[in-house]
Design a protein around this nucleic acid. Sequence first.
DNA 1: CGCGACGTTGATTTGCCTCAACGATTGTGG
DNA 2: CCACAATCGTTGAGGCAAATCAACGTCGCG
Lengths: 191, 191
Amino acid sequence: MSYDLLIRQIRRHVALSDPDADILRSLTRVKKVRKRQFVSEQGEICRYENFVVEGCLRCYHIDGKNAEHIVQFAVEGWWISDLRSFMTESPADFTVEAIEPSTLIQFGRKEVEELYRRLPALERFFRVMLQNALVASQRRIVDSYSEDAKRRYAEFRERHPDIEKRVPLYMIASYLGITPEFLSRIRQDHN
Amino acid sequence: MSYDLLIRQIRRHVALSDPDADILRSLTRVKKVRKRQFVSEQGEICRYENFVVEGCLRCYHIDGKNAEHIVQFAVEGWWISDLRSFMTESPADFTVEAIEPSTLIQFGRKEVEELYRRLPALERFFRVMLQNALVASQRRIVDSYSEDAKRRYAEFRERHPDIEKRVPLYMIASYLGITPEFLSRIRQDHN
DNA sequence: CGCGACGTTGATTTGCCTCAACGATTGTGG
DNA sequence: CCACAATCGTTGAGGCAAATCAACGTCGCG
């Protein structure tokens, strides 16, 4: 069942009864997307927070020079969206796109508010998720400034061996903030 | 009074009665630090989340080559700590240090838990704070990769004119991920 | 008054980018 | 099922943004 992974994740942090889980189910929806399909687009309003049940997605920004910059990958058990756009209902800075055929559980704006009202424990659950995301994001900033591309690549492989195998190299280059050409050169000297 | 700013900030997001405010006061403490004093240190456990009532602080990491990298500044109304260390009670990756003599309100680990229990509305308040912090952090990642140093400096000045005036240039350089020498060169060509 | 903290300047080096071209797959429509 | 087009990774030559190292001037402060 699509909701198993999500409910297990929630229960690792807060209590959630079976009736609660039913409320959760009734206020969200399952969405399947094919490879390369957009879940939300830069410039549009991001209407959902997405929990990944299955598949692999990326969140990226296209800058003024038409260059793509990947902010985040997401695989099974991760969350992905343009949070600012979702919260403020203003045009998104990021596009969320499927890298593989994927199954998501989508949380709409109103429904999230109702969930918080009816299941206050979720407030805590999302707070914990946000804390983890912030910690990861801050670490990325430090790494991007304190390490050169070769070390960043090595760390990426250690930290995300699962993702490394599922996404093309040019996306990893984009995530690391370098060109595909340069990543290719990194890969050949030595290992 | 030291708590005014904090209580106003909380009330912008959730309801907080005067008795609630008293509970808040009783479970936190006011701390004054002098210029250059450490609030928490890299390698030690970060025991508090800090709300800045007055002053200016920075959060930075020292890497293997002994180079400093500033992750975040904080002035009046901001929060600063090593969140991962605080939550997990493990050695911190960052040092938090006062740039000016400062007044903080400190939230300890146990006390925060008790606050969540007694004032569940705070759970929501902190969730919103974390959302904002995560949005800012993600934007910084994108900017660090999509813009050159000159533009990053210009954006920093626009976005944080208050901070720009209060911290030395070499700290701004560190925050921008460049050397003080290079920032100096940026500043002179043209403005 | 002397010293440390801070900002600047010059010369040189380097990590990474740009542009261009070329194989190897993969996939897709006729 | 084949042919042709994308997609993806790699390689080479040349260029630029930013780092490094060293030196020097200025200010504020103990």
